[in-house]
Amino acid sequence: MANNNVFIALQNNEEARPIIEAIEQDNAEARVEYAPAMVKIDAPGRIVVRRETVEDLIGRDWDPQELHINLISLSGNIDEDDDAFVLHRGD
């Protein structure tokens, strides 16, 4: 079985909560696991964090680079621009 999971881990805090919620909304296959003080989200092939979704949840402008503040770790190739932060396997 091909293993192409990517993951992102965030601190389990107030700022990260809407980001986690946005990931759940935009990534149907994401599996969210809670450990003490952190949240690890795994998904096959791809995880996208969309700026618009986060902005809708928090009611203000949000720059995907703000992700750095509460990010713990990740695995996958990264593609980031003004509208989204994407983790993926393959090209």
Binding site: Q11, H68, I69, L71, I72, S73, L74, I78
Partner: peptide, 13 residues
């Protein structure tokens, strides 16, 4: 630890 590892994400990349 988590503050350091958030930088690590950049380092891993």
């Amino acid at each position: 630890g988590f503050s350091a590892q958030s930088d690590e994400s950049r380092h891993m990349t």
